[in-house]
């Protein structure tokens, strides 16, 4: 396979032609905040808008999950305009997030906490109004608990579930601010045709989908 070389944060990297910048960077130890990207996804969701980087010759930050690497590409993952955009996106997510790390099973392994550290921001938004949705927590499933108020709509669960079970227990419903991950016709999770593979819990980057035994009392 042909390889191309590129420069990320001043370091020369060689990688296979046609690869996606986000994975090349992550595999070489450069962290870029990301929530919605998945390795085998050929059509990127490009929905979370956190993976911004600066690429020489481009006049504005680009999303790393949609960029195919090219020979000689020069990437800056720490550029101020990219980071500030990522910070603003992150702040928006957190302003509508039911933040409660102390009681959250994901505490310590949560991607949101990791991103906050990377971007040097607090989890609690400073500028924005807190806009929460107060959706019911679904505890009906024997394996997991689903708290839509902690969901960032990355779509990972929707995708793995569809791939695994074929039909897909989860899907997106509603539009705009009301958009959420839910089951067909908003039924409780356990009445749907879930085959208990638990893939969704593994891929969820937040405390929205957590295994039941980890549920804090």
């Amino acid at each position: 396979m042909k390889t191309v070389s590129l420069i990320i944060d001043g370091r020369k990297i060689t990688a296979n032609e046609g690869e996606i910048l986000l994975w090349v960077a992550l595999d070489n130890g450069f962290y870029i905040p990301n929530l919605c990207a998945m390795r085998d996804n050929h059509e990127p969701m490009a929905a979370c808008r956190l993976c911004f980087v600066e690429v020489a010759g481009r006049d504005r930050p680009v999303t790393a999950c949609t960029e195919t690497i090219t020979e000689g590409m020069t990437v800056n993952t720490r550029g101020e305009s990219a980071l500030s955009l990522a910070r603003q996106g992150f702040e928006l997510l957190m302003a509508s997030h039911a933040l409660d790390c102390a009681h959250c099973p994901r505490n310590g392994s949560c991607e949101l906490q990791k991103i906050a550290r990377h971007l040097h921001v607090k989890l609690k938004s400073k500028h924005l109004r807190k806009l929460e949705r107060d959706l019911p927590i679904d505890t009906s499933h024997p394996l997991f608990v689903y708290d839509a108020n902690k969901c960032v709509l990355c779509g990972r669960c929707v995708r793995v579930c569809r791939e695994h079970s074929g039909t897909g227990v989860f899907g997106f419903a509603h539009r705009g601010f009301e958009r959420r991950v839910t089951t067909f016709a908003d039924e409780p999770m356990d009445t749907s045709d879930c085959d208990h593979c638990a893939e969704c819990i593994t891929v969820c980057p937040t405390g929205a989908l957590v295994p039941k035994e980890e549920q804090s009392p």
Binding site: C48, Q88, L92, L131, G176
Partner: peptide, 14 residues
């Protein structure tokens, strides 16, 4: 807004 991406879904709401 379709609600897919962060800025449009949450930013316009803010």
């Amino acid at each position: 807004s379709c609600g897919k991406c962060t800025f449009c879904r949450l930013g316009t709401r803010q």
